[in-house]
Design a protein around this nucleic acid. Structure first.
Ligand SMILES: [Mn+2]
Ligand SMILES: [Mn+2]
Ligand SMILES: [Zn+2]
Ligand SMILES: [Zn+2]
Lengths: 140, 140
DNA sequence: TTAATTTGCGCAACTTTGTTGCATTTATGT
DNA sequence: ACATAAATGCAACAAAGTTGCGCAAATTAA
């Protein structure tokens, strides 16, 4: 249950010097307890009963948490952002897996992105975005 | 000038057994002449003078060309599809480069995606989507 | 060449995802 | 408890893309 992580979430938010509002704590708690990256919609649904937030507030909360580097944002192909808490394992750049069956997105911590990527001359690399698509264990 | 490729575009379309309409020929001609992957908007602008197409027709034309595998679709992070003609070089899976300055997207043919990607057990790979982000030669 | 049939087009309306402006409320330091 | 800065809720907006449907154009048959 994601309520257990409320104190942890609140601590993390205060450490950033931000206001510990119910919204931010709720959002971060959901993401800290989630096994996969979640869409805005999924987070909204998840909070619906305990803490109904306005969609805009949720967008702004997520934006703020990303800016504080407490969570990260995943693009994953469909035109929907997904969000996931930054554990120790996920603080560096990493790849993601997207299941084409159930649409879940998980972080692939093992997949190193620090290798050399050959680019045309004059081109400068900033960031690599890698999404492996396929079927998860449940959908296989 | 993309008008030179009209006969080529028409031939490719007829080879697929599809109707060679002015719209499809125009769209494919633009993409065949383009150096980079283009958004729906960019293609629309490009055709504006010679062949003003309804946005929906353009969407459906692109969809059809993708289904015929005459072009391919690139996700590239912002929530906008980009399209590019399938030359010989681009018929296989390949990575893309997206310039964070000018937003142009080019195909990285040299970057092999056929390596092994370690996945959790039970997970099955279908496709790899790799976008390298950075600055192109002009924007550097 | 014309007529019939099939397929694509244009238009309007709708959906989804996300953003912006502004008045109101709330968290926090004093 | 009060002042103040910051977050929230609401309405409106925006961009990208989709759907339904009547009409037009491309193929095919006559
Ligand atoms: Mn991740
Ligand atoms: Mn490409
Ligand atoms: Zn799955
Ligand atoms: Zn550039």
């Amino acid at each position: 249950m994601y309520r257990n992580v409320h104190p942890i979430a609140e601590g993390l938010i205060r450490q950033c010097g931000g206001r510990a509002t119910a919204g931010r704590i709720g959002i971060l708690s959901v993401l800290l307890s989630a096994q996969q990256a979640m869409t805005h919609r999924e987070i909204e649904q998840c909070l619906l009963e305990t803490l109904p937030l306005d969609r805009v507030t949720l967008y702004r909360g997520l934006e703020w948490l990303v800016a504080q580097q407490l969570i990260h944002k995943v693009a994953s192909g469909d035109r929907v952002w997904r969000y996931h808490a930054n554990g120790k394992a996920y603080s560096h750049q990493h790849a993601h897996f997207k299941c084409t069956g159930c649409s879940q997105v998980i972080c692939l911590d093992d997949l190193p992105l620090e290798r050399q990527w050959p680019l045309p001359s004059g081109y400068r690399l900033q960031e690599v975005e890698l999404t492996v698509k396929g079927l998860c264990a449940d959908c296989s």
